[in-house]
Design a protein around this nucleic acid. Structure first.
Ligand SMILES: [Mn+2]
Ligand SMILES: [Mn+2]
Ligand SMILES: [Zn+2]
Ligand SMILES: [Zn+2]
Lengths: 144, 144
DNA sequence: TTCTCATTTTAGAATTGTTCTAATCCATTG
DNA sequence: CAATGGATTAGAACAATTCTAAAATGAGAA
């Protein structure tokens, strides 16, 4: 169905997604959503996406890139991942999963949640509740 | 022995530590090492430590705070922990352990490694080796 | 001791990633 | 269409960190 829809009306996939999330399908949001969601799952920084938009001749300001990434994240369409001080990554994979972080390249790689198992978690400190558990496996090239 | 040494020569503890690490025991490094290592394990940001030094009437520039935290980390005297984009924390606990991150206060709290168990780790991607595994349990106050 | 020199520290400028502002633009609705 | 509230934007502002190059200082030699 998503297939058919996409073939007949090239934009309706992301437009529907945006509307469902309660966001106006503006030119910029549609273009960014296409870049983000009509490909494989990705991990992008704001600059990455800005550059990618430019490369695709989509004119969007950096402020809008940030606005959009934050809105998409708040609405659960994607999520923010922090691995390096001073730079945020945004992840289009919203499934429960973890990450390899390649220290030399700065790339993130998914670890599906069934390939890792965090057991014997201590209980959350009094008065708090767990909002998320992140496992980051930092790897470096063997040549390093 | 550390006890006796410390009683007789108040600075020799950290001085020895610095020398052993191959660092000249300068006034600034001695003062910062005392603040960092002669108390319980801590998680500090550069600004935190700068402020703490000022409070203790130790005159140290912010540049030196950064230099020192990085040197100490590179030499294995402490380690850097990244939980929020845009701010680094430095951890005086060099044991293998993980963290609760209190989202409301920005505080880190240790989880001893025997209280958590990361099992069934996938093997590192070809050509890489694991340099570290970080588990961050993000918690928010139940009132949030 | 004093001298010497490499190491360290420093103030302030520069850089980086991100957020803010307030003017303009545009999607939606009637 | 016209009205209007939300969205976008350029550029300024901001916060954390790094850089620079000049001044200070620790440590060993004389
Ligand atoms: Mn990047
Ligand atoms: Mn702090
Ligand atoms: Zn991911
Ligand atoms: Zn810790």
């Amino acid at each position: 169905m998503a297939e058919t829809t996409r073939r007949n009306h090239p934009y309706s996939g992301v437009i529907a997604k945006l509307k469902q999330a309660g966001l106006r399908p503006t030119r910029q949001r549609i273009a960014l959503a296409k870049l983000l969601f009509e490909n494989e799952d990705r991990h992008v920084s704001a600059e990455d996406l800005h550059e990618e938009a430019r490369a695709a001749s989509v004119s969007v300001s950096l402020a809008t890139i940030y606005n959009t990434l934050h809105q998409f994240s708040e609405l659960g369409l994607m999520r923010e991942v922090v691995v390096e001080a001073g730079r945020s990554y945004f992840d289009t994979n919203t499934d429960d999963h973890h990450h390899f972080f390649h220290e030399h390249s700065g790339q993130l790689e998914d670890i599906p949640s069934d390939q890792i198992n965090v057991a014997e978690m201590p209980s959350a400190p009094p008065g708090t509740s767990v909002s998320r558990v992140d496992v980051i496996v930092r790897v470096s090239g063997s040549a390093d």
